[in-house]
Simulated scan of single mutants.
Amino acid sequence: MANITAADVNKLRQVTGAGMMDCKKALVEAEGDFDKAIEILRKKGQKVAANRADRDSAEGAVIAAVNADKTSGVIISLNCETDFVAKNESFVKLATDLATLALNYETKDDFLAASFNGLTVADKLTEQTGVIGEKIEIGSYEKLDGPFVGAYIHAGNRIATLVSLSANVDGAEEAAKNVAMQAAAMAPLALNEEGVDSAVVEKEIEIAKDQLRQEGKPEAMLDNIAKGKLGRFFKDNTLVNQDYIKDSKLSVSEYVKSVDSNLTVTGFRRVALA
Rank of each mutant, 00 (worst) to 15 (best):
G60F: 03
D54Q: 06
Q14G: 06
Y152N: 05
G267V: 01
G17K: 10
F116M: 02
I207H: 08
K11Q: 06
D170T: 14
P147L: 10
I138M: 08
L103C: 10
N224T: 13
L112Y: 06
S57I: 12
Q242A: 02
G133N: 12
N51V: 01
G216L: 03
Q214D: 10
D145T: 15
L94H: 12
A99W: 08
V131A: 15
Q182F: 06
L94P: 09
A86G: 09
A185L: 09
M20K: 05
G133A: 11
H154C: 02
E206I: 13
D145M: 09
Q242D: 02
F91N: 11
A6V: 09
I153F: 00
E204W: 01
L101P: 02
E219K: 02
N51Y: 01
G228D: 06
T264R: 06
V9E: 05
K203F: 13
I38W: 04
T5S: 15
G17T: 12
M20N: 08
A183W: 05
A99I: 14
T96E: 07
G130H: 09
G17S: 13
D197N: 12
R232M: 07
A220F: 06
K235M: 02
K93S: 11
E215L: 07
A208K: 03
T107D: 03
V201T: 14
V271R: 00
K124G: 08
D243R: 13
L94K: 14
S77M: 03
M20Y: 12
N192V: 05
E206A: 15
V48T: 04
Q46V: 04
V28N: 01
V256C: 08
I225F: 01
G118Y: 03
V66W: 05
E127Y: 11
G32A: 03
N67M: 11
D109L: 07
V259G: 09
E174V: 13
E31Y: 04
D243I: 04
S77E: 15
M221W: 02
N262P: 02
G45P: 09
A226M: 06
A65W: 05
V196F: 11
A185M: 12
S164K: 06
A272T: 07
L94N: 09
G118Q: 04
T5Q: 11
A151R: 12
L101R: 03
L119Q: 12
S115M: 11
K227A: 12
M186N: 14
G130M: 11
A68S: 14
T129L: 06
I245K: 10
K124C: 13
A183M: 07
S164Y: 03
G130N: 11
L191F: 01
E106V: 03
L12Q: 00
K47L: 08
F84G: 02
V196W: 13
A160Q: 00
A167H: 13
Y105A: 01
I136Q: 08
L98K: 11
K43N: 15
Y105N: 00
I138R: 06
G60M: 08
K11C: 05
A6L: 10
Q214R: 12
L273D: 09
G60D: 04
L189S: 10
G32I: 00
T96F: 05
V240W: 04
R213V: 13
K135V: 14
R42W: 08
L165H: 10
A68P: 04
E59I: 14
L12K: 00
A175Y: 08
D54T: 09
E137Q: 13
S248L: 12
K227H: 12
A167L: 07
E31V: 06
G228N: 09
T100E: 13
I63P: 00
I225T: 06
A86F: 12
S166R: 09
H154P: 02
